[in-house]
Design a protein around this nucleic acid. Structure first.
Lengths: 219, 219
DNA sequence: TCTTTTATCTTGATTATTCAAGATATATGT
DNA sequence: ACATATATCTTGAATAATCAAGATAAAAGA
């Protein structure tokens, strides 16, 4: 019964608290492009509803209720994204925005139909894990390409937010599952280079490499 | 850019003005379960936006802009209903509510994908005509079963609002395209009887017959 | 025409969500 | 420890959508 606005707050908090287990008013405000005052007001409200544990000036975190509500939204979002790509033949560059809207209105019934039709999938088109109906989610341990040593890797996840990034990756064939070797990595220059079959080279900037998550291939 | 609320007002007005070409504040209020005062306020607003031509105490009607906005919503609604039945294998009793939500958020892109996937259909699962992308719509001349003489008929449309009604019709096999003979019709008693193949008889009340639209079969 | 009923309108208030701008607390640097 | 910077909070106001209840106009009946 949470409004779309509330669902979006919960989703953001879930993302932001992933690292340290908690987050702050300012982070949420930045994430949602709102003023801190707006977020403070909402945190008081969500705290009253039992969705977040909010200690003024100390920080905030989701309660178990808040977390399961957030996971329900994430599940919807990711199933919808996969559905749009697999069934509707839409492009992975354009499904994020669409899912962002649909996630707040599709019924449980329809979500389950999608889930069934897709064979109870565990990953969305960008490699993000899809929580099951109980909120269980497969942990992802992948590191950003920007933070690993030279070696052989496989793309397991990419950030789904930016259509331009996704478009470029797609064009270069850097989709989920793609394997390659990280050859040079000049952190100072902010550039790194990878090599794929046929000695094909590809350079990319660090802002890109921050958003491509890889796992090591035991060649 | 209209909000869901505005879209719902426009849809209601389109329905209500079908008979006489215009409607009244009270009718809209009843249709949407709102108080007349609320509707008055909204009519002033919609009038300012150029969606309705509102003459206080005289009545209201959609402007050409309002009509095309309303038809866009109706198109979405009906395409979504058909999509849910055809592709998602959902039941015609349950798709109305789902479409009611989705119609306000699906992108033009996704709607066109559905349209394409369904082969540019002209009728939804309840027999209602689907406007094309330009707002052109096939006129429907069917009469309610409650208002016709004895004879042979074919079901061409049923009201999509009430799941119980749809459930009953489905159970009795009274789906779109079904042919039958209207035998008795006792308007005073509010009951009427039809006969189908194998001399199978079926009685129904007038509230039901008001919502089943038929066209004559030239046997 | 006069009265009664019904439809419509107006006013004041409420809820959810947001911002701007000023006040206050916390953290940082010297 | 003190000044400065940053984060957070508070207050007052705005917008969209709504209702309740009283005021007014229009339609219907005698």
């Amino acid at each position: 019964m949470a409004t779309s606005t509330v669902e979006n707050y919960l989703k953001s908090i879930l993302r932001l608290q992933r690292r340290s287990g908690s987050t702050a008013v300012g982070e949420v405000a930045r994430e949602l492009s709102l003023t801190p005052g707006t977020v403070t007001t909402m945190m008081r409200h969500l705290s009253g509803e039992g969705y977040v544990d909010y200690q003024p000036r100390r920080g905030l975190r989701l309660t178990p209720d808040g977390e399961s509500a957030a996971l329900r939204v994430v599940r919807r979002h990711r199933l919808i994204e996969l559905f749009l790509v697999q069934v509707m033949a839409m492009d992975w560059t354009e499904v994020h925005e669409e899912a962002e809207q649909l996630e707040h209105v599709v019924s449980d019934r329809l979500i389950d139909r999608m889930d069934e039709m897709l064979g109870r999938p565990t990953r969305d088109p960008h490699g993000d894990p899809i929580p099951d109906a109980e909120g269980n989610i497969v942990a992802m341990e992948a590191l950003p390409l920007a933070e690993v040593e030279s070696g052989m890797y496989r793309v397991v996840r990419v950030s789904d937010q930016d259509p331009d990034l996704l478009g470029w990756l797609d064009e270069k064939g850097m989709t989920i599952g793609e394997e390659f070797e990280l050859s040079h990595c000049n952190r100072a220059a902010g550039v790194l280079e990878i090599v794929r079959e046929e000695a094909e080279r590809l350079q990319m900037g660090m802002q890109v490499a921050e958003r491509v998550f890889v796992e090591s291939v035991s060649a």
